[in-house]
Design a protein around this nucleic acid. Structure first.
Lengths: 184, 184
DNA sequence: CGCACCATGTAATGCGTTACATGATTTT
DNA sequence: AAAATCATGTAACGCATTACATGGTGCG
């Protein structure tokens, strides 16, 4: 149940709808936390029942009504509590490509190399995105709202992790491709 | 449904029980794929229904019976098919620490630094484990069964990814700690 | 004597995805 | 005229975790 805290985190900046929350997530936390629209709606409903958020309907001219969620004092307290709680264990990861590679000894060299080259391209592209587009977005945010300067430092730290991660993936793929070519 | 392929992958080496599959996973794929015992049992049952594996009971003296699973021809075919299928998209990740950090602008410097230092310790330990213990296990495996030399190359590649990943995490944490200390 | 391990599983619950549904407005 | 976007949601399903249950063997 960490999606809850992602939503509380955004609502702590300003009230917004489930739809807007999804859009914010897609351009900011998607790199390390994501959710489908339907899961966001369901989670908001549950959070309202728990008293962490409240909602009211806003009518619009010619558009469907918006259900705007606001964080409650209880929600703020829960969020602060969660933020201060230390993360004492590493999270287990799931990496589909590594699973495939682990069992690929029966494939021929060429098939493995094709797989690895494709993967290299994907990670390379993602690395570029973090280095340029994502970086620019954060810098603009920081420039437009100087009161969020501290926040922007942390946002950029999470972006930087993405950049380093993708670069590492590319480096590992280069290493592994070379190994397969020479030793396999 | 990738757990299925992890299980087929192991059963492709030799028939074994759900209990043994769990033990193998814990010492080999845990780094990039894991599952609870109960999920493994449930999945094996489903795979049997699909015809990918077969099982028979082996009695033991003084021990509970063992239900030994064997991969079928259909299972082998399914596995080969999955191995050859290219991974055309990057998997979205979830990183609890990054989520917390992203929303931590309201915390004080000291609280953030404590969190990051703890995390650094955990990743540092994990990096050491990959470099030494895990590496040794794979080398011994390769030495004991020379017919699995190719397999061992791939196993070590997945281990190496873990090593690089943990080193990157440590590097990022050092960078981020320094940034917080000077700019936050 | 008590604890851990071997080995099996069920049940309940929670997290997450996919598919389906609606209906108006804006864009191509 | 067709497609995409705005905005809401429900229903069904699948993946995953936690808790519960059993009962014998081996070890300190």
């Amino acid at each position: 149940m960490s999606l809850q805290y992602a939503l509380l985190g955004f609502l702590n900046y300003q009230p917004m709808t489930g739809y807007e929350l999804k859009q914010f997530m897609d351009v900011s936390t998607a790199n390390f936390w994501h959710a489908k629209q339907s899961q966001i709606y369901a989670t908001l409903k549950k959070m309202a029942k728990m008293g962490l958020v409240e909602s009211h309907i806003e009518a619009q001219n010619g558009r469907p009504d918006r259900r705007v969620y606001t964080i409650t004092e209880e929600g703020r307290a829960d969020m602060q509590n969660w933020l201060a709680r230390p993360v004492t264990e590493l999270q287990p990861k799931k990496e589909l490509l590594l699973l495939k590679l682990f069992f690929s000894a029966g494939l021929d060299k060429a098939a493995i190399l094709t797989q690895l080259h494709l993967q290299r391209k994907l990670h390379q592209q993602q690395a570029e995105q973090f280095k340029h587009e994502t970086k620019a977005v954060i810098q603009q945010f920081a420039a437009n709202m100087p009161q969020l300067a501290k926040d922007a430092l942390l946002w950029d730290a999470t972006r930087r992790f993405g950049e380093l991660y993708e670069e590492t993936a590319v480096r590992w793929l280069d290493e592994t491709i070379a190994m397969i070519e020479s030793d396999f």
